[in-house]
């Protein structure tokens, strides 16, 4: 009798189950399918065991892409997180300035990713684009289609422009949630600006900051569209991050088995790193 009643609740979460199934479980299982088998056509599959994985883990190409990816993620986190926190701290807490700041901040987030790539492509065109023109005037030999450094510089600058706002908005929300008495007590205790940041703002922002870092970490690991449109992974393979390399392998070379194995390895790396990060940060939180 009671069972029937309880089962009703399941109907309410069915939509979510379908949604998760369609956008996560089923695609993932397809990839798993390809990762352990070989297929040529007509959907004929032959079992390959861990062959593709062994291939991938032995290939220099994978480690090179992985290395580039780690470096890229590390650099953008290093820039975006402190910059985001800094901007959030300097934003006004009340008055009409708040809405202006919020609108300005959300603008980059509203632009489609491929448009961002295209915009920056034109913006940074050597000698013709706005950025390219002025850098050339200043005497820099700037050409992101030829110089590795210029390409990295441009990709990183673009990512910072595009995504720092997300960190800002999250931190700003965290800051706004700190009750006034905390600041007042700090004033009374004679705390310096730095002490207020270290002992009040940072601890109170810890949770949103963790979310911001995780989001930026995962997103930057998946970065594809913008560098693809901007540099196409070049010059050479200099900006071919994991996703770009993966797509090249899967669609360019139609090497589905290796690509599937690589994406699984890739997926596990993101999962593992996120988990390690999260547990380290949340250690010592209240039970």
């Amino acid at each position: 009798m009671n069972k029937v009643q309880n089962n009703k609740a399941w109907f309410f979460i069915l939509p979510v189950i379908f949604l998760v199934a369609f956008n996560a479980v089923i695609p993932l299982m397809t990839v798993v399918n390809y990762a352990f088998q070989e297929t040529f056509n007509n959907n004929i599959f032959t079992w390959q065991g861990t062959k593709w994985f062994e291939n991938i883990l032995r290939s220099e190409r994978f480690y090179a892409a992985f290395g580039r990816q780690l470096l890229f993620t590390f650099i953008i986190l290093l820039i975006q997180i402190p910059l985001g926190v800094f901007i959030a701290l300097s934003m006004p807490k009340k008055g009409f300035g708040v809405s202006i700041c919020l609108v300005l901040m959300s603008m980059p987030l509203l632009i489609p990713w491929n448009v961002v790539g295209a915009m920056w492509n034109i913006f940074a065109l050597p000698r013709i684009g706005f950025l390219g023109h002025y850098l050339a005037l200043l005497g820099f030999d700037y050409n992101f289609t030829q110089s590795i450094y210029a390409a990295w510089f441009t990709v990183i600058l673009m990512d910072v422009w595009h995504w720092t706002s997300l960190v800002v908005l999250l931190c700003y929300a965290g800051l706004c949630a700190i009750p006034d008495p905390f600041y007042q007590a700090a004033k009374i205790d004679g705390a310096s600006r730095w002490a207020v940041f270290k002992y009040i703002e940072l601890p109170k922002m810890k949770k949103v900051l963790t979310i911001a870092i995780l989001l930026r970490f995962m997103d930057s690991f998946m970065i594809y569209t913008e560098p693809f449109v901007l540099t196409g992974g070049g010059p050479g393979n200099a900006t071919a991050f994991l996703s770009i390399d993966l797509v090249k392998m899967a669609l360019g070379q139609f090497d589905l088995g290796n690509a599937a194995a690589m994406s699984l390895v890739y997926f596990l790396i993101v999962l593992l790193l996120s988990w390690i990060f999260y547990s380290v940060v949340m250690k010592g939180e209240d039970k």
Partner: peptide, 18 residues
Amino acid sequence: TIERDIGQIFQFPVIYDT
């Protein structure tokens, strides 16, 4: 405030979490 040398206790306890 700092120069006035006063202490103030609020309705909700303010402590430094860390």
